[in-house]
Amino acid sequence: MSPESEKTNNHVNVDDTKKPFRIYIGYDPKEDVAYEVCRYSILKRSSIPVEIIPIKQSELREKKYYWRERNNLESTEFSFTRFLTPMLAGYEGWAMFVDCDFLYLGDIKELFDLVDDKYAVMCVQHDYTPKETTKMDGVVQTVYPRKNWSSMVLYNCGHLKNKVLTPEIVNTESGKYLHRFSWLDDDEIGSVPFVWNFLVGHNRVVEGDVSTYPKAIHYTLGGPWFESWKDCEFGDLWLKELEEFEKVKKDGKVE
């Protein structure tokens, strides 16, 4: 990528939207279809160029970027690899990380338009304590402060504080340190409207209030790609997107 262009009034210059907006999606082999639908939903609705890169743990291990041993509290292969996003982006410009269990209903340009260079990261700052003890396919549900903040993050990759996120730190620091953004001061964490990380089973649509309708649905407890979650809230939207993706793929029109 070329050097980041000049900014005006903290916000990204309009010319930056001509460059592909880099989106790193967490990838887990057991949720391959979730990744494909997430990717398709972004590309389908985006009015700006985007570059989508899966974060695959196996590839990161081959490149010696990741060597951490997996523990039983990691529900996916990208529980920790997500924090390599700034490094993978060359510590340059803005990039986004998102879990694969998202379905995008809004244009990613609207989200990109929110970025502000005064912040090191921006995310939906959920106040979320799940009642369930398990999620997905029987994986243990963990509870901690700032839960789900790291599930979709806009990274100001060139911010000095984010250069702390080296492979060494990502492989050795605790989950507490990383998922709570402990390398940052609170005023370096910007806020994004909750509709961009709408937690199924937690957030609610208020009838008649369009500002509460999700722009990105997060099936954080489990999505319709798991048999036991076929009938979850908003599951019909995901299944419809899957059906469309499969048809487009069959017709050879998938990018």
Rank of each mutant, 00 (worst) to 15 (best):
K30W: 08
G106K: 07
R22F: 03
A89D: 11
T76Q: 06
Y177W: 13
Y91W: 10
D32I: 05
M1R: 11
F102Q: 08
T220N: 15
E246K: 14
S75R: 13
I217N: 00
G93W: 04
L221C: 04
Y24P: 00
T76G: 03
N71L: 03
S5L: 12
D127M: 05
E4P: 03
N203E: 11
D15M: 12
D15V: 11
G223K: 01
Y24I: 01
T129M: 09
D117M: 05
Y27E: 07
R146F: 12
S151Q: 11
D101Y: 05
T17L: 15
N10Q: 12
Y35R: 05
T76S: 10
K250C: 02
S174M: 08
V98A: 14
M87P: 00
N162F: 02
H11S: 13
K109R: 11
I53E: 09
D117G: 15
S46H: 05
E31A: 11
L221E: 01
L114K: 14
D127P: 00
F21K: 00
R22T: 09
I48S: 04
H179C: 06
E207N: 14
P167E: 07
K176G: 09
Q141D: 12
R61H: 12
E188Y: 08
D99T: 07
W183N: 11
K147S: 10
E241K: 03
S228Y: 01
W149T: 05
V210D: 15
L88I: 01
A34R: 09
